[in-house]
Simulated assay, not measured.
Amino acid sequence: MTTRITAAPSRGTTVPPQIPPTTRRRLGRWFAATGWRHAIGVVMVVFAAFPLLYVLSASLNPRGTLTGSNALFSQVGLDAYARLLDNPEQPFAAWFANTLTISGVTAVCSVFLGALAAYSFSRMRFTGRRTGLLTIVLVQMFPQLLAVVAIFLVMSTIGDLFPAIGLNTHVGLIMVHLGGALGVNTYLMYGFFNTVPSSIDEAAKIDGASHARIFFTIILRLVAPILAVVALLSFIGTTNEFVVASVLLVDPEKQTLAVGLYTLVSNPNYADWSAFSAGAVLAALPVMALFLFLQKYIVGGLTAGSVK
């Protein structure tokens, strides 16, 4: 018979705490059930937040280069914002105002026109209805980039007849954006309009309401979530659009933020990346404000509409 003798720890040494086996099993079961989801969520948040932090750090870097921004927030200053706002050759305020105007008008008109078309396809029966829906789906298969040359030629011809809506005009660019987004917005709204019971329309018709009154007073209130989603997506897409805006808008005073900020880095020898990053940060503020304003409709309304 042998006796195991365990030496007592000497004074001044720290014994690491031992995790009981029961606690280990509980942690293992928790990680297998839900813990791995939290781990993936943390990784995705870090993956998504790092580019934003890098751009913010680059906008606060007074040196104007990206090489000094590798160490996040190693140098902090507002010199880039001052250069961006005080440069007379680069009218940032005009770019910002042009972007807000074009994006706002496009978002409102896209929602209104898309809602009218979706209501017609959802509630009315007419010849060519099915063909029209299939055509909308097929047209969305082709990106708008393929039609840039055709858009330029059409707008150039229209400009010869009606200069107010031709090339180098905000109205012309808004019309192009409306035409490109009308199909996908209509199809997106059409699916949501179908979730609204048609018995509501029938009850309103019995009371003597017309299609216009049903649409404006009843249907639009019930489909507010999809209207908010379409408005947000249209605003973001128009704000970020570069190719069509760079082709149609030539005058620097009429350009949008995407086109104007590109001029800051178009020349590799004199690229001011800090000012470009500062402009990108300022351009993101309206989008964030609109998202926060429409959040209650997007989150609460979509979940309510999904169970109608």
Rank of each mutant, 00 (worst) to 15 (best):
G132I: 07
A278T: 03
Q144R: 11
Y187Q: 06
R125M: 03
Q144Y: 08
A271F: 04
S274G: 15
L134C: 10
L248I: 15
G237P: 00
V139D: 06
V76F: 12
I19V: 14
G300A: 09
A48L: 09
Q90M: 13
V223M: 01
Q18C: 05
Y119I: 03
L66P: 01
T169Q: 03
C109V: 14
Y190G: 02
Q18E: 14
I165Q: 01
S110L: 08
F242M: 11
L178P: 02
A71G: 11
R221F: 12
V43M: 13
L173Q: 04
F293Q: 04
V299E: 13
A212N: 03
V148P: 06
L145M: 10
G35Y: 08
L60Q: 01
R63I: 08
F50N: 09
A97C: 10
P88N: 10
V244C: 02
L113V: 13
N267E: 09
A7T: 12
Y54E: 06
S59A: 15
L182C: 01
S74Q: 14
L60R: 02
T13R: 11
M175E: 02
T263W: 06
A164N: 07
V108P: 02
R26F: 04
A7Q: 15
F152P: 04
R37S: 13
T135P: 05
T239E: 11
D79R: 14
F96V: 07
Y81P: 00
L302N: 01
L161G: 10
G68H: 11
P20F: 10
S246W: 10
A203T: 09
L285V: 15
I40H: 06
G128F: 07
L167M: 15
R125C: 05
P21Q: 13
E241G: 01
F235G: 03
T195C: 06
A117Y: 00
A118D: 02
Y262T: 10
G166Q: 00
F50R: 08
R125K: 13
F276C: 12
S198G: 15
L78S: 14
T65D: 15
N70G: 11
T6F: 15
T13P: 00
A94L: 15
V229R: 00
T34K: 14
G132W: 02
L66I: 15
V184N: 02
V176R: 01
D207Y: 00
F192N: 09
G159V: 08
S120F: 00
A97I: 12
I136M: 15
A212V: 13
V196T: 02
M175S: 09
R29V: 06
W30R: 12
G114T: 10
N194V: 03
L257D: 01
Q144G: 15
